[in-house]
Design a protein around this nucleic acid. Sequence first.
DNA 1: GATCCGTGAAATTCTTGCGG
DNA 2: CCGCAAGAATTTCACGGATC
Length: 328
Amino acid sequence: MESTRFHDIFDQYFHGMRLSRALPGRTERMPLSEPVGDGVIRRLVTRSSMEIVLSDFRLLKDRTIQVASGGAMVELSFCLQGKGEVSVSGERHELAAGSCALQFMQGFRASFEYDKRDPVRSLAIGIPVSLFNDFMADESEGRSVNFAGLIGGGAFRKFQKPIDPRASYIISQMLERTDRAPARKLYMESKALELLSIYFETFLFDREQQTRKARLSKSDLDKVRQAGEILLGRMDCPPSLLELSRMVRLNDFKLKIGFKEMYGTTVFGYLRDNRLEQAMTLLQNGAANVSRAASIVGYANVSHFSESFRGKFGINPSEFIRRRAELD
DNA sequence: GATCCGTGAAATTCTTGCGG
DNA sequence: CCGCAAGAATTTCACGGATC
C-alpha cells in the first residue's frame, strides 16, 4: 500500500470539500491518467455554492489518501461501486458500494484507503454550512436542526445507510446526463436538491434511524459482508437463509441482524434490491428486454419481476424502457 | 411480449424462554 | 439485564396461468 501526497488531486476533486469555491457555475472535467489511474472526475459548482462531484475511475496502485481540512462543510455522498475504508479522528468506517452517507465536518483529518482492483464510482454533493443552516431554518416544530447542534463540539458526524430506491433512480438519471443534454446544469442541480431533501429527511427527522446502533463485532460483520458477496455471486440461484448462514459460519439470527446493520435491509431484501438494480442497468443500456433482464438477474417468471420492479422504482419495466427511448 | 391475479411456500418479525 | 435461540404469527415472494 503506497501512501501518497495525492492531495492535489483528491483534496480538490474527489471528496470535493474544502476548496475555494471560486468559480460558481463552472463545470470542470478532470481525466485521470497514468500513472495514477484511469477514469474521470467531473465537478460542478452551482451559484449557491453547492458542489456536485461525479467520480468514475480506477487506480493503478493501492493508495492511502490523507485529507485534512480546516473548513466546515456538509456532504452527502453515494458510493456506487468499489469499496474502501475511511478513518476519521481514529474512528473507522466502511465505504461499501450501495451505501450513502451524510457527513458533517469541520477541521478534521481523515484517511481513505483504496484498493487498486476496485473501480470507484461515486457521487458527492457538498454544501456550505450556511446553506445547510438556511435549508433547516424554517423547521417550525420545536427542535431546530442546525450544523452546530448536530456536530456538537466534535470534528465529524456521519449518518450512513444504503441507497434507497428513489435515490438510486435519481442518481441514474444524473449519470445519464453527465455530458450532453440541454439545461444540464439546471437538471443536475435540481436532482441534487432532490437527493438532499430525501436524505435530510431520513437522517435528521426520522427518530428510529438515529437510535440504531452497531450490535455486531467486526469479525461478524465481515461474515455478513461475505454473505452479501455470495448472494450477489449467485443471484440466479441463491442459497436459502440457512444454507447461507452455514456457508459463512454465522447463525441465521446474527446474519439477519447483520444485514440490517450493514445494508439496512433483510437478507433477501438485499438480494432483491441488487437484482432489480442490475436489471435496471440492463434495461437502461438496452442490453435486454424485460423478460430477458428478468431471467438474467434470477427471476424465473417475468410477472413477478415486473411487480417487484414497480415496487422498487415506481414504474413498470416496459414503461421504463419506453421513457428512456423518448429521451434519445 | 408484458401485466394482473390467486395460492402455497418461504422469509421476517414477534414472542417467549433459557442460561450467563 | 443481555445475548441468543426456538417457535408462532405475520408478511412477503415466486410461480403458473389468465388476460391485455
